[in-house]
Design a protein around this nucleic acid. Structure first.
Length: 434
RNA sequence: GGAGAGGUGGCAGAGUGGUCGAAUGUACCUGACUCGAAAUCAGGCGUAGGGAAACCUACCGUGGGUUCGAAUCCCACCCUCUCCGCCA
C-alpha cells in the first residue's frame, strides 16, 4: 500500500511512477473522496466533542444530585441540548466510515512505485541483463529435455499426476524424488549455515488478512486456491512462503536494533495459473503445486537496498554451488509484480529450451507490504515507522531439478549428481547408471 | 466434538454505566544523588487520524446493539487456556 500522504501531497509523483509501470491512474475520484472525507471527519469530530462534553456534564450533575443537591433544572437543560445530536452524529459517523472504506479500497489496489534504478519497459522484453555466470554446456549428442530424461529414469510420472489430481500435477518417484528432497535440504542448510537465516516452518493455508498483507489480495484472488470452511470463513493455499513468513511481523512494532530478521522456509506453493492456458504445458516448468525455498528479510528502511543485493547474492550462491549457468536480470517497470519496488530475476540455463528460464525472483518491497501489514520498527525513544520487507526464491526446487537433469545429462540418458548434493544422496554420483 | 475459564497499554494486573485512554507494579527514557554502577528520589513514557498550534477525535479481542454517556450491560463471532473425548 502506498503512503496515503504521498497521494495527498505528491500526486504527480505517484502518477509518474505508475505510468512507468504502464498503469494509468485517475486521481480525480481520490481527490474528491479526500475533500469529502476531510469535511465529514471534521464535522463528525465536532459533533462527538459536543456530545462528550455534554455527557460529562450530565455525569457531574448526577453526582451532585446523589449528594442531595437539586440540579433537576440544569439536568433537563443539558439533556435537551444533547437530545438533538444523536441522529446527526450517527449519520455522519456512518458516512465517514463509508468514505474511509472507499479511500482504503482505492489505495489498496494501487501497485508499488518502481525504484529509480528500475529500467523502463512495458514487458519482459524491457528487462535488463545485469550479469551472466557460468558457461552453457556443449553436448556432442542430441539433447533431451527433462521430461524425456525423467521418464527415462522412471522418476517423473506426469500421467499418474494427472490421474490423481489433474493437469499441471506431477508424481515423482525413487531417485528423482530423492534428488528433489536433496535440493531442498541443500538449500536450507546453505542459507542457515552460511547466510545467517533462521529456518522457519509455516502454515500452508493462511487467512485473508495475511494475503492482503503481502499484496495477493484483493486484486489477485483468481491466482489462488481457496478453501471454504463450514463456518463461512475461508483460507487460501499459499502461492509462496513469502506470505506466511512475511506476515510473521504483521501488526508488530519491532525494536530497530533487533533487525534485520532473516528467515528461510521450504514449502510447497500452490498457484491456480489462471490465464496461463497453453503456456509451458509440457513438463514441470509451470505446475499447480511446486516446492520452493524462500528467503525473507525484515530490515530497517535505510538498509533495504543493500539487503536486496545481498539476498540476490544468497540465491545466486545456490546456482553457483550447483554449477548451473544463469543470468541476472533487472525487471523493467512494466514487468514487475504488484508489490515490488525493484526485482531481480535469476534465470537458469535450460539446454533443451536453449534459453534461460526464471528460477528465482528477488524483490525489495520497501514499505509497501509493511504498511499493509502495520509492521513497524522503533528506535529507542523514537516514533514507529514501517519496516522494509524483501524476499526471494532461493530457489524454486522443481525448476532447479529440471535444470540439474538437463545440464547434467549424459549421452546414455543417465544424469550426473552435482557434487554438493551427493552427501544428501547417500553418495550416489549419477542417476540411471547400472 | 463436550464442559469450564478468560481476552485491558512492551509485560504483569486493577477497573461491572458518568472527567477512564484507563489505577498500580515492572520494563524503558530523562534528570538528581554517585568516581561510576546498583539502590533511592523526581519527571516522562500506547497507537492512529485531524490541526500552524492550543488542542480535538477514535481505539480496552472483532462486529453489532442498548444509553445523553459503554472497558463496564445485551447479542453474535474470533482467539487463548484447562479438563474430557478423538487423533498423526
Amino acid at each position: 500500500m502506498l503512503d496515503i500522504q504521498l497521494l495527498r501531497t505528491q500526486p504527480e509523483q505517484v502518477a509518474t511512477g505508475l505510468a512507468r509501470r504502464g498503469a494509468a491512474i485517475d486521481l480525480a475520484p481520490f481527490e474528491a473522496l479526500e475533500a469529502e472525507r476531510k469535511q465529514v471527519q471534521t464535522l463528525t469530530q465536532e459533533l462527538q466533542q459536543k456530545r462528550n462534553t455534554l455527557s460529562k456534564q450530565i455525569g457531574m450533575l448526577k453526582g451532585r444530585e446523589s449528594k442531595g443537591e437539586d440540579v433537576a433544572a440544569s439536568l433537563a437543560d443539558v439533556m435537551g441540548e444533547v437530545a438533538g445530536l444523536g441522529d446527526a452524529l450517527k449519520a455522519n459517523e456512518d458516512k465517514l466510515a463509508v468514505l474511509l472504506a472507499q479511500l482504503d479500497a482505492f489505495v489498496a489496489q494501487i501497485p508499488n512505485l518502481p525504484h529509480e534504478s528500475v529500467p523502463d519497459g512495458r514487458d519482459e522484453t524491457g528487462n535488463a541483463e545485469i550479469a551472466r555466470w557460468g558457461t552453457p554446456p556443449v553436448f556432442d549428442f542430441a539433447v533431451k529435455d527433462h521430461v524425456e530424461l525423467g521418464e527415462g529414469l522412471g522418476g517423473l510420472d506426469f500421467e499418474t499426476g494427472v490421474k490423481i489430481a489433474g493437469s499441471r500435477f506431477t508424481l515423482m518417484k525413487g531417485d528423482i524424488a530423492r534428488l528433489h528432497r536433496a535440493l531442498a535440504q541443500f538449500m536450507l542448510d546453505t542459507h542457515t549455515r552460511e547466510h545467517g537465516y533462521t529456518e522457519v516452518y509455516a502454515p500452508y493455508l493462511v487467512n485473508p488478512d495475511s494475503m492482503f498483507g503481502t499484496g495477493q489480495l484483493p486484486k489477485f484472488e483468481e491466482d489462488l486456491f481457496r478453501v471454504e470452511r463450514s463456518d463461512g470463513s475461508r483460507l487460501y493455499l499459499i502461492p509462496t512462503a513469502e506470505v506466511p513468513v512475511t506476515n510473521i511481523v504483521r501488526g508488530e512494532i519491532l525494536e530497530t536494533e533487533r533487525l534485520p530478521l532473516r528467515f528461510v522456509c521450504h514449502t510447497p506453493c500452490f498457484r491456480s495459473e489462471a490465464g496461463s492456458y497453453g503456456k509451458d504445458t509440457r513438463g514441470m516448468i509451470r505446475q499447480h503445486q511446486f516446492d520452493k525455498v524462500e528467503l525473507v528479510q525484515i530490515v530497517p528502511p535505510e538498509a533495504s537496498w543493500e539487503a536486496l543485493e545481498q539476498l540476490t547474492g544468497h540465491a545466486e550462491t545456490i546456482l553457483q554451488k550447483l554449477n548451473l549457468p544463469y543470468r541476472k536480470m533487472a525487471l523493467c517497470a512494466g514487468d514487475m509484480g504488484f508489490s515490488a519496488a525493484k526485482t531481480y530475476d535469476l534465470e537458469v540455463w535450460l539446454p533443451a529450451q536453449n534459453t534461460y528460464r526464471e528460477i528465482s525472483s528477488c524483490s525489495n518491497f520497501e514499505a509497501f507490504q509493511a504498511r499493509r501489514m502495520q509492521a513497524r520498527c522503533r528506535d529507542k525513544g523514537g516514533k514507529p515507522r514501517p519496516v522494509h520487507t524483501l524476499n526471494g526464491s532461493g530457489l524454486a526446487i522443481g525448476r532447479t531439478l529440471v535444470a540439474v537433469l538437463e545440464n547434467y545429462q549424459r549421452a546414455d540418458g543417465s544424469v550426473g549428481v552435482p557434487e554438493v548434493l551427493r552427501g544428501y544422496m547417500g553418495g550416489v554420483e549419477a542417476l540411471g547408471v547400472r
